[in-house]
Simulated assay, not measured.
Amino acid sequence: MNILITSAGRRVSLVKAFQTELKKLVPEGKVMTTDSNIRMAAACHVSDNAFQLPLISDHDYINILLTTCIDNHIKIIIPTIDTELLLLANNRDVFIKKGIIPIISSPKFINITRDKRETHAFFVENNINAAKEYSKYKYKLPLFIKPINGSRSVDNFIVKKQEDLTEYHFKNNELMFLEYLDHNCFEEFTCDLYYDKKGDLKCVVPRKRIEVRDGEVNKGLTDKNLLLDYIKARLSHIEGAIGCLTAQFFKNIETQEIYGIEINARFGGGYPLSYFAGANFPKWILQEYLLNQEIDFYDGWEDQLLMLRYDNEVLVHENEKRYSTGI
């Protein structure tokens, strides 16, 4: 009854959340982690055990991951980074046959979330506004430019003047020219969504993004606003969606008009705020996939809970697997 969090990196809070919830339901259970460099991955020193795996691009990655799971009695896999999602989804049955359950959406849905054009089409199909995409030959300033397939705000540009556009923007076929949604007019929210094994929505937690660092929320606030009913009405069921999704929306401050921006089919870096507010996704995953229990819709999480993140230390002592946190 062990859990494996892959590509754990800095996900210390996520590891601790699963440890807390697993001990309540399965006291002897352990939360383990993988990374391509476990010595340099803070979460691997906080977990109960850690395994160094090759990069996801390695042709033998799935076989090594499967062997690691079998040897260590892993029942559930929690992926954490975009680049591993499709690989794990395409090989889900390989793990299921061995009694190991990757908490991963379907390949079809992951392809929608990984391709921003497909994501925008998905929003429109579900009666959600999406930013207009311009041709690179006919556009209107200001622009927001981002990759079709990207993460962590890499290659994102706000272009307000013609001279700010470069040859790189025009010749890179992976970049999209989009309508710019002015942050002076819109509030930005990341919503943590929980979908059960049937693809039914069980929880919505809008988190206002007050400050972002390296594409991840650094200051955030839970906010019970109209996004709750808006998402429930439009995304109550998503075929192939499983577990935690993070969806980004912009809400116009004056008109309350809402635009869908993107979806990630995994735990987001800011999920700990939702967890501490009471939206207990780790517990629900354990109840569904270990105990075969039904999950009810939950909206009893704490409103207006403010999260202020700061840097902390994990100290790794020579020849020891122990860790300590500094101030």
Results as ranks from 00 to 15, higher is better:
residue 85 L to W: 04
residue 145 I to F: 03
residue 77 I to F: 04
residue 285 I to V: 11
residue 217 V to F: 05
residue 326 G to H: 11
residue 141 L to Q: 12
residue 239 E to L: 10
residue 49 N to M: 13
residue 69 C to I: 03
residue 295 I to C: 08
residue 164 D to E: 14
residue 50 A to H: 01
residue 302 E to A: 04
residue 68 T to I: 12
residue 199 G to D: 03
residue 317 H to D: 15
residue 207 R to P: 01
residue 9 G to V: 07
residue 273 L to S: 02
residue 239 E to C: 10
residue 199 G to P: 02
residue 220 G to T: 11
residue 145 I to K: 01
residue 88 L to N: 04
residue 130 A to I: 05
residue 38 I to Q: 00
residue 292 N to C: 13
residue 195 Y to T: 00
residue 226 L to D: 15
residue 78 I to M: 02
residue 316 V to N: 14
residue 222 T to M: 02
residue 103 I to P: 00
residue 104 I to L: 07
residue 56 I to W: 08
residue 264 N to Y: 05
residue 6 T to A: 05
residue 226 L to W: 11
residue 70 I to T: 12
residue 278 G to K: 03
residue 156 N to G: 11
residue 191 C to E: 03
residue 251 K to D: 04
residue 89 A to D: 02
residue 284 W to P: 02
residue 128 I to C: 05
residue 4 L to I: 07
residue 53 L to P: 02
residue 115 D to H: 10
residue 58 D to Q: 12
residue 205 V to F: 05
residue 191 C to R: 02
residue 55 L to R: 13
residue 183 H to A: 14
residue 9 G to M: 05
residue 43 A to Y: 00
residue 47 S to E: 04
residue 190 T to W: 09
residue 52 Q to V: 08
residue 288 E to I: 10
residue 293 Q to V: 12
residue 81 I to T: 12
residue 282 P to S: 07
